[in-house]
Amino acid sequence: MKIAITSTGKTLDSQVDPRFGRAAYFVIVDTETMDFGVIENESAAAAGGAGISSGKVVIDSGAQAVLTGNCGPNAERTLTAGGIKLYTAVTGTVAEAVELFKNGKLTEASGPNVEPHFGMDT
């Protein structure tokens, strides 16, 4: 399956970006083959609505799960509407995050874990 990981860089060795809506990149990884693609997040510096437009980008990428640090309510609502599973509080590198996911070590989030605008100050 394809999963999206918020990333500070363009490789599997990059650190997971702690913000969803304003993440620098989305790394889309095929968990079977470890093939990956990188999407630069155009909403990273948006004035508002970053979580929603980022959510749309991830849904359109065909990913079925999102691994990130923090996710606000608008993004969470968007991802849920797209049928995407959300995993928050993920840290380390993108590769490590994928490994944890594959081994079933991550717990699915039951909702947003931060308030709106969380990613604007970090």
Binding site: A46, G48, G49, A50, I52, S53, G55, K56, I59, N74, R77, T78, A81, G82, G83
Partner: peptide
């Protein structure tokens, strides 16, 4: 609707339309 909105206040997700009134 989602394409024209510059504030992500309305977005179409898999034939479902979400609105974010505050935006």
């Amino acid at each position: 609707c989602g394409e024209i909105c510059q504030y992500s206040a309305i977005i179409c997700i898999k034939e479902n339309v979400l609105t974010f009134e505050q935006l």
